[in-house]
Nucleic acid binder design. Structure first.
Length: 410
DNA sequence: GGACGACCTGC
DNA sequence: CAGGTCGTC
C-alpha cells in the first residue's frame, strides 16, 4: 500500500523550488484556518488536496519540497452506498483535462518530456496556490513600519501567507464555519469530501478525495445526507447555495468574481443562503484575489479592541454590518491594500495552538487548540508599556502603507 | 441601523 | 458557548 512520503527517506523522489521561510511558513499558513484540508502527516510534512491532486509538502531553510501522488489504490469496494450514488455526479475538472491533453501531445520522448511538463505545471500550481509572486517580506516591512503592534508580532510569525484557494472549496468550507469551532469544521469538511467528492488516492489508511463539484453539492438529496453527517442547519445552506449558483448564474460564475471589484463580489456572494458579511469576506480574501477584504469575526473584534484600542463599537452587543465596515476600514487605512493578508498574521498569532511560539525558545509547553485570549500567564510576553504604545496607533495619522493604489471601499 | 432569538451539534 | 446568518421587531 502507498505511504505518505517523507523527505529524509527518499529525497530523490522529491522535487524542489527555492523559497525562503520568511516568504512561506507551511506550519503557520496551512494550519491557521484558511484551508481545512491539510494535515501534518509526518514532522513538518503537510499532506492535502489541491488542484485535484494529492500533495505532500515540506520545507528546509531556503527550499520548498513537494511530492504529488498518482492515482492508485482507489478503494471503491468498502465505501458505503451514499458515496457511490454521489460519485457519479463528479466530472473531471478542466485543468485535469488540459493536463491529460498535454500528455498526449508529447509522444516523441514520452518519459523525459512529460516529466518536464509535469514538473513545470506542478511548480506553477504551487506558485499560484501560495501566491509566491507576492513578496511577503516587503509587505511585512510596510505593515511593521505603519503599525508597531504588527511589528511586535511579525518577528515571530513570519511567513504567514494568504492561500489562493479554489473558490468553490473556499465558499462551501466557510459556509460550514458559522457558529462553529475549527476542530469540528475540519471534520465536517473532511466528511463532505468523503461523501460527495471523487476519490483520488489512498496513503497509509487515509483516503483522499477531491472537493465536491457544484453539481454534486446541488443535488436535492444532499441536505438529508449532510444532516446525517452532522452538519446541522448548515446542510440546507450548502445545498441551496450550490443550487442557486447553478440555477441563476452557472458553473463559471464563482471564478468570474475574481475579475470584479471587492464590494461587488462581496454583495454577489451575500445573496447566497448561509453567506453573510464574514463568510463573504473570507471567500473574497482567500479565493477571489481581494487582498483588501478583512474578515471580521469575534476574535478580530477582540484584537481590534485589545491591541488597537478600538472603541467605536463598544456599545454594540454583537458585530453589526456597520461595525464590520468600520473595523474593516480602520485596518485598511492602517495596513493598505493588502490589509486582509496582514490581518491573517495577527489572527494566526492569536490562535491558542501557536501560543507556544511566543515563549522563550527553550521552554516547552503542551500544545492546545483554538483561540486563546492571550491572557494565559506564560504566553503573554507583551508588557503593559508595550500595550500602551500599541494603543497610540489608533491616534496617529494613519495613512495607507505606501502601495500604488488602495482600492478602498466607499 | 440595532437588538433578539432560533438554528445543529459537540466538547 | 463556538471563527455566523436569518427572520423579525
Amino acid at each position: 500500500m502507498a505511504k505518505h512520503a517523507v523527505l529524509l527517506s527518499g529525497a530523490k523522489m522529491w522535487r524542489s523550488m527555492a523559497c525562503a521561510k520568511s516568504e512561506l511558513r507551511l506550519d503557520l499558513t496551512l494550519a491557521c484556518g484558511q484551508s481545512f484540508r491539510w494535515r501534518e502527516t509526518a514532522d513538518g510534512h503537510w499532506t492535502g488536496v489541491m488542484g485535484g491532486r494529492v500533495w505532500t509538502l515540506t520545507q528546509t531553510d531556503d527550499t520548498l519540497w513537494y511530492r504529488v501522488y498518482k492515482k492508485q489504490d482507489i478503494g471503491v469496494e468498502g465505501s458505503d452506498r451514499k458515496r457511490k450514488a454521489y460519485v457519479s455526479l463528479q466530472t473531471e475538472n478542466e485543468s485535469e483535462k488540459r493536463f491529460q491533453g498535454a500528455l498526449k501531445k508529447e509522444e516523441e520522448e514520452p518519459v523525459a518530456v512529460t516529466l518536464v511538463q509535469d514538473t513545470h505545471e506542478e511548480e506553477e500550481m504551487l506558485r499560484d496556490y501560495f501566491q509566491l509572486n507576492v513578496k511577503l517580506g516587503d509587505l511585512y516591512k510596510e505593515w511593521g513600519a505603519a503599525d508597531p503592534h504588527f511589528k511586535h508580532i511579525a518577528d515571530i510569525f513570519t511567513g504567514v501567507r494568504m492561500l489562493r484557494q479554489d473558490p468553490t472549496e473556499c465558499l462551501f468550507s466557510f459556509i460550514c464555519t458559522s457558529n462553529n469551532h475549527i476542530s469540528r469544521i475540519q471534520g465536517m469538511v473532511e466528511r463532505l469530501c468523503q461523501a460527495l467528492g471523487a476519490p483520488l488516492c489512498q496513503l497509509d489508511q487515509t483516503s483522499y478525495y477531491n472537493f465536491p463539484s457544484l453539481s454534486a453539492l446541488a443535488d436535492s438529496s444532499v441536505e438529508a445526507c449532510l444532516r446525517d453527517l452532522g452538519f446541522g442547519y448548515r446542510a440546507r445552506f450548502l445545498q441551496q447555495s450550490a443550487k442557486q449558483i447553478l440555477d441563476t448564474h452557472g458553473l463559471e460564475w464563482l471564478e468570474g468574481l475574481r475579475r470584479v471589484p471587492y464590494l461587488q463580489a462581496c454583495d454577489a456572494l451575500r445573496t447566497l443562503p448561509g453567506v453573510g458579511t464574514k463568510v463573504a469576506d473570507c471567500v473574497c480574501l482567500m479565493s477571489l484575489d481581494k487582498a483588501e477584504a478583512v474578515p471580521i469575526d469575534t476574535h478580530v473584534w477582540q484584537i481590534a479592541k485589545r491591541d488597537y484600542n478600538y472603541a467605536s463599537g463598544n456599545r454594540q452587543k454583537s458585530i453589526t454590518d456597520k461595525l464590520h465596515r468600520d473595523i474593516g476600514d480602520f485596518f485598511r487605512k492602517l495596513w493598505g491594500p493588502y490589509a486582509g493578508w496582514a490581518q491573517s498574521v495577527l489572527f494566526c498569532a492569536d490562535l491558542k495552538k501557536f501560543q507556544k511560539l511566543k515563549e522563550v525558545p527553550h521552554l516547552k509547553q503542551p500544545q492546545e487548540e483554538e483561540h486563546g485570549e492571550g491572557e494565559t500567564s506564560v504566553v503573554c510576553k507583551k508588557t503593559k508599556m508595550q500595550r500602551e504604545k500599541d494603543a497610540t496607533v489608533k491616534n496617529m495619522k494613519t495613512k495607507p502603507a505606501s502601495h500604488k493604489k488602495a482600492k478602498l471601499s466607499a
